[in-house]
Simulated assay, not measured.
Amino acid sequence: MSDSRIRHEAIEQRLREALAARADTVEAGHLRPARLPTTPRLRHPPLRRTAVVLLGLAAVIACVLFAVTNRSSHNPVPPVGTPPHSVNPPTTPAPASPADPVQPPEGADTGQGPDPASPATTAGR
């Protein structure tokens, strides 16, 4: 391990000496005048820029149409004026519907004979 450490130090010393020798050879005539750095402007052709804008616009329109068509098919909009939740049920019971069987009053004859109050039985008398 100490052998490799010596080699690294020797290499570093040689590099320092080489850089110092090179720096000593540079004179004022070798330097160029000071200027602000400039970057070359990349000009995009107008056709390319227009194509990118049109493709972006087409993508936005496609996303909007996709969102609108999916929303309307899965979640229909309720009619205007209806509450979004159910109204409280009435507190009084609703009257019985005609489809419910009517229970005869207590003490009434439950025989299967003809009803004496019906028009069919009174017409024959």
Rank of each mutant, 00 (worst) to 15 (best):
N75I: 01
A21C: 05
P119I: 06
A58C: 06
R5H: 12
Q13D: 15
P105W: 00
A108H: 03
R32M: 09
C63L: 13
A108P: 00
E106Y: 04
E9C: 08
V60F: 04
A34V: 15
T69A: 14
T82Q: 11
T82G: 02
S4A: 14
V53Q: 07
L31S: 02
E27N: 07
P98V: 06
S97D: 10
H30I: 01
L54Y: 03
A20C: 01
A34C: 07
H8M: 12
R5N: 13
G81E: 08
T121C: 08
D115T: 05
V87N: 05
T69C: 11
R49Q: 14
V102R: 08
I61A: 15
A67L: 11
P40W: 12
S97R: 03
L54V: 11
H74I: 02
P84V: 00
P93D: 07
L31M: 13
P114F: 11
Q13S: 15
P45F: 07
T25S: 15
F66Q: 08
R7F: 09
P90E: 00
D24P: 00
R41E: 11
V68R: 03
L54S: 08
G107S: 08
P101T: 07
P93V: 06
R14L: 13
A117W: 11
S97P: 08
P116H: 06
A123C: 07
V64I: 15
A99S: 15
L31K: 02
R43N: 09
E27V: 11
P116C: 07
D3F: 14
H30S: 03
E12Q: 14
A96L: 05
H44W: 11
G107F: 07
L47K: 00
T50N: 10
R43T: 14
A120N: 09
R43V: 12
S72L: 12
Q13C: 09
A51E: 06
T50G: 10
H44S: 09
A59Y: 00
V77G: 02
L65D: 06
A34W: 14
E27T: 14
L36T: 04
A58H: 01
R14S: 14
G29L: 13
E106H: 07
P84C: 06
P93R: 07
P116M: 00
H8K: 14
T25H: 04
G56F: 05
T122C: 07
S2C: 01
V102Q: 08
L54G: 09
H74D: 02
R71P: 01
V77Q: 09
A123S: 06
A99H: 09
G56E: 01
V102C: 04
T38Y: 05
L54P: 05
I6Y: 07
Q112S: 11
P79L: 06
P89V: 06
A18I: 09
N75T: 02
A28I: 09
D3C: 02
Q13G: 15
N70W: 04
D3W: 12
Q103C: 00
A99K: 05
R14T: 10
P101V: 09
A10N: 13
H44A: 12
T82M: 11
R5Y: 10
V64R: 01
P105T: 03
V102F: 02
V87F: 09
